[in-house]
């Protein structure tokens, strides 16, 4: 086909369907929160001492941290969903990382070293590593779909960031169930769980986000 003919055809189609509508990020975020929240409340529920735990700084810290990851990762996803996205928003993800490192350092300095291993609580950690990725599956799917509707030029990175945003949403809700509030526990198990979603997102992104 000649380029002129292609242009004639495209412009005719453009006049017929001028506006392509895509799902807004707001709806995607709301959907992700609903999916992860409902899945948690319908299965495991929140921890029994939820109300009294709200008085503990480290319990609240988990929500702050996961909310920061969710918001910053999703805004990077949104930025990079456009071909001209700079990706500079990713730098903001350093903030929750630094906060977590500082919290772990503070906790370890206040805890005798023979109790460090007990903070890790391996059996609860294993649960965390299974539940967080499961809670994050629907959010990951939603973010990948929203990216697919747009035009990311780095598919694997886009998928990985979708995974990180999904991990933020999933962790936020799982934090209400999880009875371990130790920063060392969070830094270890929540991070590993997030890594599962990031890897999954990167693989899915590199396959699905091509256009």
């Amino acid at each position: 086909m000649r380029t002129e003919d292609l242009i004639a055809r495209l412009s005719a189609d453009g006049a017929r369907n001028p506006a392509i509508s895509v799902t807004s990020w707001r709806w995607m975020a709301a959907g992700a929160a609903m999916a992860a929240g409902l899945a948690l409340f319908a299965t495991l529920g929140i921890r029994p001492d939820f109300m009294s735990a709200l008085g503990s700084v480290w319990f609240v810290f988990k929500f702050v941290l996961s909310a920061l990851v969710a918001v910053f990762a999703l805004s990077a996803v949104r930025d990079l969903a456009s071909p001209t996205g700079s990706g500079r928003g990713m730098l903001r993800l350093a903030a929750p990382a630094v906060l977590l490192v500082l919290a772990v350092a503070f906790e370890l300095s206040a805890t005798p070293s023979d109790r460090w291993v007990s903070l890790l609580s391996f059996s609860n950690g294993a649960t965390c590593m299974v539940v967080v990725p499961l809670l994050g599956l629907v959010p990951l799917g939603l973010f990948l779909y929203a990216s697919y509707e747009r035009a990311p030029v780095r598919p694997a990175l886009q998928g990985a960031l979708c995974g990180l945003a999904a991990a933020g949403f999933a962790s936020f809700f799982y934090a209400a169930r999880c009875t371990n509030d130790s920063p060392l526990f969070v830094a270890t198990w929540y991070s590993l769980a997030a890594l599962v979603l990031v890897a999954l997102g990167a693989v899915a992104g590199s396959k699905l986000l091509r256009w």
Binding site: M1, T3, L6, I7, L10, D13, G14, A19, I20, S21, V22, A81, S82, P83, R150, A151, W211
Partner: peptide
């Protein structure tokens, strides 16, 4: 020219971005 056409089609498909 094939590449020009592929780009134009992508521009068309992704014009909302």
């Amino acid at each position: 020219e094939d590449l020009v056409q592929e780009i134009l089609m992508a521009v068309h498909a992704k014009r909302h971005t």
